[in-house]
Amino acid sequence: KKYKVVEVKENKDGTVELVVENENGEKKKITLSKEELDKLKAGDTVELK
């Protein structure tokens, strides 16, 4: 499934919390490390299994 990044929030521990949404409007929260996030920004599309 493809999800669009709608919100990006940095946590104090250096991880980043993303809120992503698919075309049905379903939202998910995922947490990434700073390194994983470096290639993402709001409006990008991510694929989740």
Rank of each mutant, 00 (worst) to 15 (best):
E26D: 12
V5A: 01
E35M: 10
A42F: 08
L32K: 03
D44K: 02
K4D: 02
I30M: 05
E7N: 07
V19G: 01
V6C: 13
E10G: 04
K34R: 11
L48P: 01
V5I: 10
K4S: 04
V46S: 09
E17Y: 12
E23R: 04
N24L: 12
S33A: 14
T31Y: 12
D13Q: 02
K12R: 08
D13N: 12
E47S: 06
E23H: 07
Y3E: 01
L48M: 05
I30G: 01
D13P: 01
G25V: 00
G43S: 03
N24K: 11
D38G: 15
K4A: 04
L40F: 14
A42N: 13
L48W: 05
K28Q: 08
D13W: 06
K27F: 08
K39H: 14
G14W: 01
E23F: 05
V6D: 01
K49A: 15
E21M: 08
K2V: 12
I30N: 00
E7K: 12
L40Y: 15
T15G: 04
L32T: 10
K4H: 06
T15M: 08
K4C: 15
V6R: 03
K9R: 13
K29D: 03
E35D: 11
N22E: 07
D38V: 10
T15I: 07
K28V: 12
K28R: 12
V19W: 12
K12N: 13
V20K: 00
Y3D: 01
V6I: 12
G25S: 02
E23V: 08
V20N: 00
G14D: 04
K12E: 10
V19R: 05
E36F: 15
E17A: 07
T31A: 04
K39L: 05
K2E: 06
K2S: 06
G43N: 04
N11E: 04
L37V: 13
L37E: 04
V8D: 00
D44Q: 03
K27N: 06
N22H: 06
E47K: 02
G14S: 03
L40D: 01
V20Q: 00
L18H: 00
E47T: 05
L40T: 10
L48D: 12
N11I: 07
K28I: 14
K1A: 07
K49M: 15
K12I: 11
E36H: 15
E26F: 06
K9I: 12
E10L: 08
E36Y: 15
L37M: 11
V16C: 10
E21D: 02
E21R: 05
T45C: 15
L32W: 13
L32D: 00
E10I: 05
T15D: 05
G25R: 04
V8S: 05
V20S: 00
T15V: 04
K39M: 07
V6Q: 02
V20F: 04
T45I: 13
V46I: 14
D44E: 10
K41M: 07
G25H: 10
V19Q: 05
N24H: 11
V19F: 09
D38K: 09
D44V: 02
K12V: 09
K49L: 15
V8K: 05
K27D: 01
V46F: 09
Y3H: 02
V16I: 10
N24A: 14
E10M: 10
K39C: 13
N22R: 07
K4N: 03
E47A: 05
K1G: 10
D13V: 02
E21H: 04
D13F: 03
L40A: 10
G14Q: 01
K4V: 12
L32I: 14
V8N: 01
G25F: 05
E36W: 15
N24E: 14
V20P: 00
K34S: 11
D44C: 07
E17W: 10
L32Q: 02
V8A: 06
D13A: 04
K4I: 14
L18N: 00
L48A: 03
K28E: 05
E10Q: 08
S33Y: 13
E17N: 10
L32P: 01
K39W: 05
V6F: 05
G14Y: 02
V16M: 11
K34A: 11
K9P: 00
S33K: 13
E47P: 09
D44P: 00
I30T: 01
